[in-house]
Design a protein around this nucleic acid. Structure first.
Length: 225
DNA sequence: GCGACAG
DNA sequence: ATCTTGTCGC
């Protein structure tokens, strides 16, 4: 898989913000896809000892949730972690990993926010626009926005609001378990995104895509240290 | 000025 | 993220 859009990753903080503002205009917040057969999960971890990033991409069959392909790569760190500029740290290794993927997914579930972002352009939206592929932002914690606690039953949602916009949903994926933050990444509506996240989280707080990619990077991390 | 702040 | 300590619910 190759990105359909390329841009430099060697940027100052100001340049990165300007790029987000420019690319955010390309984000599509409605369903724009055909049949979803394969779904990708992605995750990145940092090795403090070796000062490098490990990225994993796993491809699951959408109905069975079986793994059909996976890739793990190492890459150097070229941008610090700054809230709001997360994608400039994690996307270079992820793009490198996607270049090795043979089974093209029709949906990518990201570990981070989509449009639930100060400039409506979080990691999931950035990845979606680069590959022009539907993506969902799925965060364990909130970056910004106000919300009421959703009901305690699986499937309950509560809107995440910022500056008068509904930027995502706080979604309860398991009864009595802390909810997660779901937002549109690219080419998918918020409602459809939540439906897919629920389908992918039959018995765990996070989607199976996230669980599998987390497992892969942790295993790779342990093997190099 | 102070707190908040995806991973 | 990752680590540690303390609290609460079942």
């Amino acid at each position: 898989m190759e990105p359909r859009l390329n841009h430099s990753w060697i940027l100052t903080e100001t340049e990165a913000i300007l790029l987000q503002q420019k690319l955010s205009l390309k984000v599509i917040k409605e369903d724009l896809f055909a049949e979803i057969r394969y779904i990708a999960g992605v995750d990145v971890a940092y090795s403090e000892q070796r000062d490098l990033l490990i990225a994993a991409v796993v491809i699951l069959e959408a109905n069975s949730l079986n793994i059909v392909e996976s890739v793990v790569v190492e890459d150097s760190v070229q941008f610090p972690y700054i809230p709001g500029l997360f994608s400039f740290r994690e996307l270079p290794p992820l793009v490198k990993a996607f270049k090795q993927i043979k089974t093209a997914p029709q949906l990518v579930v990201c570990d981070g926010q989509g449009i639930a972002h100060p400039r409506r352009f979080g990691l999931a939206s950035h990845l979606g626009v680069l590959f022009d592929i539907p993506t969902i932002g799925c965060g364990k914690t909130r970056l910004l926005g106000e919300y009421d606690e959703p009901n305690l039953t699986r499937g309950s949602i509560s809107p995440l609001q910022d500056q008068g916009d509904i930027i995502g949903n706080v979604l309860r994926t398991q009864n009595n378990v802390k909810p997660i933050f779901v937002s549109t990444g690219h080419r998918i509506s918020l409602d459809t995104a939540c439906e897919w996240v629920l389908h992918l989280s039959p018995d765990y707080r996070l989607p199976e895509t996230t669980r599998q990619s987390d497992q892969l990077v942790k295993k790779a991390l342990a093997s190099i240290e």
